[in-house]
């Protein structure tokens, strides 16, 4: 099965207003697709639909050529979604947070791999501090460490640059490009200008 997410005639209505209609989208291996649009134009909703979280839409989704509902498990096993909320438990340490995410995908993982992933996002020294005591940017970085830790082909990232400092933004952008160059694909919303991405494709909403 090839890495390919397709949407056909996608439409979504919220409060008697069409967020988008007749949207056709093909996302292939090696691409970075950026969803653009003003606030409230349905970027997050579109990402949630494309990551299989919402069922309240019109149109069809295909994963590797097969209808989504038939291959949902395969799709989920290859998807890494980072939402608006980072999904980091304030009461757990960064290491414990990552351990749970690794276990969710069915692997035990190793402590050293998790420490390495945290070091990669600049959190060495904070491994055992409860995440609630870290700053918003650091909590976001815990979530971003999953990009390094878990091998997934399709990344769906909703505003991943929120609260990240300038240095971190550069590193993350490089990571997105490297992922696309390695054959993965990235679907991202951001108000941040992506400068380092030669393969960027834009989808305009609203």
């Amino acid at each position: 099965m090839s890495l390919c997410l397709q949407a056909r005639q996608l439409a979504c209505e919220r409060d008697d207003r069409w967020l988008f209609e007749g949207l056709d989208l093909d996302i292939h291996s090696g691409e970075i697709v950026r969803i653009e649009g003003p606030n409230g134009s349905g970027k997050t909703t579109l990402l949630k639909i494309l990551s299989g979280q919402l069922s309240d839409y019109h149109g069809e989704l295909y994963w590797g050529g097969a209808p989504m509902h038939e291959v949902r498990e395969h799709f989920l096993a290859n998807l890494l979604y980072l939402g608006h909320a980072p999904g980091v438990k304030a009461g757990l340490t960064p290491l414990e947070n990552l351990a749970w995410y690794q276990a969710l995908s069915g692997e035990q993982g190793s402590e050293s791999a998790r420490e390495e992933a945290l070091a990669h996002v600049g959190l060495s020294g904070f491994e055992d501090v409860p995440a609630g005591q870290l700053s918003a940017g650091q909590q976001r970085r815990i979530a971003l460490a999953r990009l390094t830790l878990t091998q997934r082909a399709l990344w769906v990232l909703d505003e991943p640059f929120t609260a990240i400092d300038r240095h971190g933004v550069g590193a993350l952008e490089a990571q997105l490009v490297a992922h696309a160059n390695a054959g993965g694909c990235v679907l991202v919303t951001t108000h941040h200008e992506l400068t380092a991405s030669p393969v960027l494709r834009r989808v305009q909403l609203g």
Partner: peptide, 8 residues
């Protein structure tokens, strides 16, 4: 290059 995909 094509990234390898995982089965569940």
């Amino acid at each position: 290059p094509v990234m390898s995909m995982h089965d569940p």
